[in-house]
Simulated assay, not measured.
Amino acid sequence: MELPEAEEACSEVSPMAIPHGSNETSYLLPPNKEDWGGHGIPDFVYGQKELVPKGIQWPRNGPSLLDTLPLSRFDSALCLAWRQRMELGLFRYCLGELQTQTLPGAVGFVAQLNVERGVQRRSPQNIRSVRQAFDPEQFNFNQIRPGEVLFRLHREPDLPSALQQDDILVVINVSPLEWGHVLLVPEPARGLPQRLLPGALQAGVEAVLLSSHPGFRVGFNSLGGLASVNHLHLHGYYLAHRLPVEGAPSEPLDPGGRLHLLQALPAPGFLFYTSGPGPDLEALVSRVCRATDYLTDHEIAHNLFVTRGAPPGKTSSSSALTGVRVILWVRKSSFGIKEGEAFNVALCELAGHLPVKTSQDFSSLTEAAALAVIRDCLLPPAQAGEVQAALVALIAKEEQ
């Protein structure tokens, strides 16, 4: 595979950078581009002890103290390799520190100005169905440059699983939302369409548990839910701010408490929760994928967000990051990028993180305007109620 010329190297990168003394050098590219193709893909091998379900908290005195938190081995490997790729010019634009504001209001939207992503990201593929088959003639992750791959996630034998496990490539997103924005891509050679599979979701949840940063999140956009590439992948990225979904209150939808309704703004969603790795996590993954299978089969677009957070219930304390929340939203199908809106509604926007495209929109955006854009993407109440009833019925079958 011939390697394209790298873009002009970035002179500055985000201050959320790994210290140069980090020893995770096995994930760095050799200095000469001619050697990248033969570099091979290093394995990031992790075991049970590195999955940390508790003890990760936001600093009490704000995100400015995040740099003082100890980094996990996963964070160190990912961020050091990601920073190197940024300095080598493998991204479509240089990502510095993004202008950020919390919108006044009850929700607590975190808005960020990211003009370059709005202008320079790859155009979405021609997608017309949530169930569309993989097309090898369209752009896919078998076509990326060797240097875009950071490493392969690999579980140690002490992490047995009843779920089918795929090799997961951790790849830079060349049009990053924020610092450390990567894609988790299961065995790209298999040509899997953008339909969530248990092995991929389990890797995403475990990636959150591998990070000691409270703001490392993972998400999934379905086709029709603003996925721009029809090749199975999840997103992972760092955001040094709390989000409303971390601790928003919820109510149970089934007697066993396996499915909850997150009613708080910015959008109602279905909440699944696990306190940590093991059988409970695998049960959650299977449960979520049964729900997304139903949605895909019925041509219902959806977005999913994985974050550390509080247990389900009436609590609204976003500081109680005692486990992992998986939030699933159903929405109207939307194919392509909507022009004229301040932001497009996908996984991060539904969670309360708004990457805004223009300076004018960033300076004028209000909570009410943001909520109006999001509400326009949601299913009508009657259809949303039908979906809720169907998912509750799916969960009830577990008891039979």
Rank of each mutant, 00 (worst) to 15 (best):
A342Y: 13
V324G: 05
S334D: 08
A342Q: 12
T292R: 03
A310E: 10
T296G: 06
L304M: 08
P312K: 02
P277A: 03
I337C: 10
G352R: 00
S334G: 07
G323W: 15
A291C: 06
A320W: 04
E299N: 03
G336F: 03
A283H: 03
K314C: 14
A351P: 11
I327H: 08
F305M: 09
G340I: 04
L304P: 11
A301M: 03
T307F: 03
T307W: 14
A320P: 04
D280N: 05
G313R: 06
P277F: 02
R287V: 05
T315V: 04
V330E: 11
V330Y: 14
G336A: 08
R290C: 01
T315G: 12
R331L: 14
D293N: 12
V324R: 01
P311L: 12
S319A: 11
D297N: 04
E339R: 14
G309F: 07
N344C: 09
R325K: 13
D297I: 04
A310L: 12
L350R: 11
T274W: 00
G313K: 11
F272K: 03
S275K: 07
S286W: 04
L350T: 08
T307E: 10
S275G: 05
T296L: 01
T296V: 07
K338D: 13
E341S: 12
A310S: 11
T292S: 14
V288K: 03
R290E: 05
S275V: 04
A301I: 02
E341W: 15
L304E: 00
F270S: 02
K332A: 02
E349D: 12
I327A: 09
D280M: 01
L328F: 07
D293F: 12
L281G: 01
S317K: 12
A283M: 01
P311V: 10
G340K: 15
K314E: 14
T296K: 00
P277I: 03
L347V: 07
G323E: 13
L347Y: 10
D280L: 01
L321Q: 11
G340C: 14
R331P: 13
L295S: 03
I300M: 08
K338I: 13
L347P: 11
T296D: 05
I337Q: 11
S333F: 13
V326D: 12
L284A: 02
H302M: 09
L281K: 07
A346Q: 07
G278D: 06
E341Y: 15
K314V: 10
S318L: 15
G313E: 12
T307R: 09
T315E: 08
L304T: 00
G323S: 13
C348I: 10
V326I: 14
P277D: 05
K338A: 13
R331Q: 15
S316L: 09
R290M: 03
G340F: 15
S319H: 14
L304R: 01
T322G: 13
A346V: 02
T322M: 08
K314I: 08
D280H: 01
G276T: 02
L347W: 07
P279K: 06
R290P: 04
A291S: 06
E282G: 05
A351L: 09
G309H: 04
R325F: 03
P279C: 00
Y294A: 06
L328N: 11
L271F: 06
A283V: 09
G352M: 06
L271C: 06
T307H: 10
G278S: 00
N344F: 00
N344Q: 11
A283L: 07
E299I: 02
P311H: 13
S316K: 15
N303L: 09
C289G: 01
L284N: 00
A291V: 03
S319P: 09
